[in-house]
Structures are given as structure tokens and as C-alpha cells.
Design a protein around this nucleic acid. Sequence first.
DNA 1: GCCAACGTTGGC
DNA 2: GCCAACGTTGGC
Length: 152
Amino acid sequence: MRYWLLKSEPATFSIDDLKGRSDRTEHWDGVRNYQARNMLRDGLKKGDLAFFYHSNCDQPGIAGVVEVVREGYPDFTAFDPDYDHFDPKSTPDTPRWYMVDVRFKRTLKRVITLAELKQHPLLHEMPLLARGNRLSVMPVTKVQWNYILSLV
DNA sequence: GCCAACGTTGGC
DNA sequence: GCCAACGTTGGC
């Protein structure tokens, strides 16, 4: 089992939104970056856990935990011009973008902010903290995972 | 709202 | 294949 971090802007889709979905499950659509796409398509496996990270908001940081319940499959929101992330270069026959389904596990008792994460030398190697990082899907090591959860 | 950092596009 | 221009991300 592996660990991941998934970024989302809470104004668009928050951990509470996920919790409110039917079966507390939703597809993780809209990723339009090849490196992140590759991880969604090939890396995330059923049963893997991921931090739900709130980005581009008042308090950027880790807000909760989700579980991968369906492995990578074509992101159908790329096929439909009505969706924000429509991509005419992606078709059902030759899909370019992928997504997974995630299920809400829990909300952390408090948001572990980016500022706090930066203060821990043990976490300095996280890609999340790398200069200029913009990946919306990234791996988390078991050590980092357990350490972060111990901060709550 | 600003802006640094990065990815993508497209002319050449 | 280079690289300038542009668009996006996302912290601050």
C-alpha cells in the first residue's frame, strides 16, 4: 500500500464536499499535467491512502485523508465541451487524461498548514515543499505519512 | 492582486 | 530543436 497527496482548491472541491457525496465517493477529475496524469494512471492503487490538500486558499494545508477506491481510468470530463477541463485532443478511443475515484476517510482535527509542514526537517524532502512545485498529485513516503499524522 | 515558477505552444 | 510568448498554479 502506498501513500499520496492530492491537491484541490476548496472553493472548487473541498474535503467537506467529498464527505457530502453519495457513498462519500467522487472521481478525481480535471488533472491536466502529464506527470500527475502518469501517477493517476499507473501509480495509485485501490486501497492506497492520500492526504486531501487544500490549495490556493486562506489556509493551505492538509485537511483530511481519503482512500483510492477505483484505479486510473479515462477522465471523461475531457471529452465534453461543457466541462471546464475539456480537451479536444483527448477522445474516448485515445484518452489523454486519467482519474481515480476516492472515498472520504476522515477530516483531520485541524488543518496541518503548509507553514507548519515547512518547519519540520523530516519533511523537507517532500515534493510538496520543493521550490516552485506545482504538481497536484504526488507520492508521500510511509515515514512522512506517519510523521504528519502524529502532528495533529 | 502580485508575482515567481513552471509547463505548453508554436514560429522559425 | 530552440526559445519567446503565453497561460496556469498557488503562496503570500
